[in-house]
């Protein structure tokens, strides 16, 4: 059984339907990516998993249904979401942001260790630990978002365009860190990216989304070698 199973997922914004019956699986320990053009429904898919849009169908995490549950309770099952737009708590410090990320974690020692780990991955955040988070640069806030997600000690991380607005060098660094987190800490990941090359490089499985439907799925290598994908998403 896959860690995350999505079946017939439909999502709605008011009267407009954004997802039209989505099916996909995510294996424990792996990195799966969802590709698609703007407006394909990638963000909506992630938000559906976290119960932030009205939806129906079925989503199971470790065999437990998530649909209808409150966001905070879904999060408590070990699903951390790095949202589109970063979701920084702008009025508190960097360190307080990380503390908030650990809101569901019990034990001061555990929290302190988690914070140290985040700081080793992102030394920049340590330098800025007492700075008001709203004043961090875009890239720093992106790191903070990933760091905050790590603080939750999740089993599954949902990442919505983590490379957005980052300089190419930093993106490379970030993706290395994601790979490390995945391999060393065993955190499964569901990655949404505009940058298909990068995403396919990191992920083992990929799904291609078009107007709220899965139109293609397979291993990253299969997808990357597909003629159409190459033309429309990889650009060579």
């Amino acid at each position: 059984m896959a860690m995350l199973e999505v079946r017939g997922l439909e999502a709605f914004y008011g009267h407009t339907q954004a997802l039209h019956g989505l099916d996909f699986d995510l294996e424990e320990g792996g990195i799966t990516t969802i590709l698609g053009a703007n407006g394909a429904g990638k963000t909506t898919t992630l938000r559906s998993i976290c119960g932030m849009v009205s939806n129906n169908g079925s989503i199971t995490f470790d065999g437990e249904g998530l649909i209808g549950k409150a966001t905070e309770n879904i999060v408590r099952k070990g699903i951390a979401h790095v949202p589109e737009g970063r979701g920084t708590f702008v009025r508190v410090t960097t360190e307080e942001n990380l503390r908030l990320g650990a809101f569901t974690v019990k034990g001061a020692k555990k929290i302190a260790d988690g914070m140290e780990r985040v700081y080793t991955y992102f030394p920049r955040l340590k330098e800025r630990r007492n700075q008001q988070a709203g004043t961090l640069s875009g890239g720093e806030q992106q790191m903070l978002a990933v760091g905050r997600a790590m603080m939750l000690q999740p089993r599954l991380m949902l990442l919505d365009e983590p490379s957005f607005g980052l300089a190419p060098l930093i993106v490379k660094e970030l993706f290395e860190i994601l790979r490390t987190i995945n391999q060393e800490e065993g955190v499964s990941m569901l990655l949404v990216e505009q940058n298909a090359t990068l995403a396919l490089g990191l992920a083992d499985h990929a799904y291609l989304l078009e107007t709220g439907r899965v139109v293609m799925s397979g291993t990253s290598d299969d997808i990357a070698s597909d003629e159409n994908v190459r033309k429309s998403y990889l650009g060579y």
Binding site: C50, M52, A70, T71, E72, V75, R76, A80, H81, P83, G87, T88, F89, V90, R91, V92, E96, R99, L100, G101, A102, F103, T104, R148, M151, L152
Partner: peptide, 18 residues
């Protein structure tokens, strides 16, 4: 801290389990 976070950015607060 969680109360401040919830008041200022409810959506992000939910995403950390508040």
């Amino acid at each position: 801290l969680a109360m401040r976070a919830a008041a200022a950015s409810p959506e992000s607060a939910r995403l950390v389990g508040i």
